[in-house]
């Protein structure tokens, strides 16, 4: 009885926190005015929240990708190319970008089905390298190293376009996060977790492991592709730099520091690390920033394996043991 209430309280607390932060996110442009820099930082943050959440979903099924930049870039390139050649609005092509990334994701997933942990890490990493090479090579399609101009999501001619872009991104992020949350809570999400915990047992339980693993790849690649497309339509330009190793590693850092396998972890991690990075930049810090980020990652893995989201619990348990 008591336990149930406690659980309910925590759920309520979480829901309240979510609603409050959403309201805050909605109010930021109104409070701060149209601050272009702040909005740019926030828009990129939202893109990475989607990206990190998508990565997290794949990790939930036990598949830790080290080359998600491949999907990020493929989504971006597909969307930019279609928007340019067919003259479609970016909002439509973003979905195509995501779908194509999902298609590639299934293909890559097929090679990864039988692989575990760092075999899979290496193969996904390799696919990012391959995608990079091929994109740079197909210069008639992708513009090669010169890249391609990409349409802005909302034309620059619209007054305060960045604010609309921000709200659009916020809306999309909420939609993506809610969909991912629903997947995580559904039978599919449970199946992912069962596979991650013990593939053999999952099989015995009657879970079609291959199908679910591919599904994880497809969904994760889809949202990653959408995030990538959104980012380049925000920048207005895409070059093969979009496949940089850092782009593959960032969502991992965000998820791990925030809290793996939870819905709020990637969000928290992205916000925290992005703000930290931007903040330290203002001190004129250069390499020191990355040293700090590396240290945070090591310390979190070592002492806080469930990420920042577990800090309240840790405090609680500490208070209990030392009254």
């Amino acid at each position: 009885m008591k336990l149930d209430r406690l659980k309910l309280d925590r759920m309520n607390l979480k829901a309240w926190l979510g609603v409050i932060s959403l309201i805050l996110a909605f109010l930021i442009p109104i409070i701060s005015g149209i601050d272009t820099y702040l909005l740019t930082v926030l828009i990129l943050m939202l893109v990475f929240i989607m990206y990190a959440s998508a990565w997290n979903l794949l990790a939930l099924s036990g598949q830790g990708s080290l080359g998600h930049a491949a999907f990020f870039g493929i989504g971006g390139y597909t969307s930019a190319i279609i928007a340019k050649s067919l003259g479609l609005p970016p909002l439509a092509t973003i979905l195509v970008g995501g779908l194509f990334a999902a298609f590639i994701g299934v293909l890559i997933g097929l090679t990864c089905v039988r692989l575990r942990e760092w075999f899979l890490g290496m193969v996904t990493f390799g696919f990012a390298v391959i995608a990079h090479t091929i994109t740079a090579e197909l210069s008639w399609l992708t513009g090669g190293w010169d890249g391609l101009p990409a349409k802005k999501i909302i034309p620059v001619s619209v007054q305060n376009y960045l604010m609309y872009e921000y709200y659009l991104m916020l809306l999309l992020t909420v939609v993506v996060v809610v969909i991912i949350w629903m997947i995580m809570k559904s039978r599919i999400g449970l199946a992912f977790e069962a596979i991650r915990e013990n593939e053999l047992e999952a099989k015995v339980m009657g879970i079609n492991v291959t199908r679910y693993k591919l599904m994880a790849f497809a969904v994760s690649a889809f949202f990653t592709g959408v995030a990538g497309a959104l980012q380049i339509h925000h920048f207005g330009y895409i070059t093969p730099e979009v496949y940089a190793i850092d782009i593959s590693f960032l969502p991992i850092i965000y998820c791990v520091s925030g809290g793996l396998f939870t819905i709020e972890g990637p969000i928290l991690g992205t916000i925290f690390i992005t703000l930290l990075d931007e903040g330290l930049k203002n001190f004129g810090w250069t390499y020191e920033r990355y040293i700090v980020i590396g240290l945070i990652l090591i310390l979190v893995v070592r002492f806080l394996p469930k990420g920042f989201v577990s800090i309240p619990e840790k405090i609680k348990s500490r208070l209990k043991s030392h009254p």
Partner: peptide
């Protein structure tokens, strides 16, 4: 680190 971030 949070304090540093606030300086942003």
């Amino acid at each position: 680190s949070l304090l540093l971030a606030i300086s942003l």
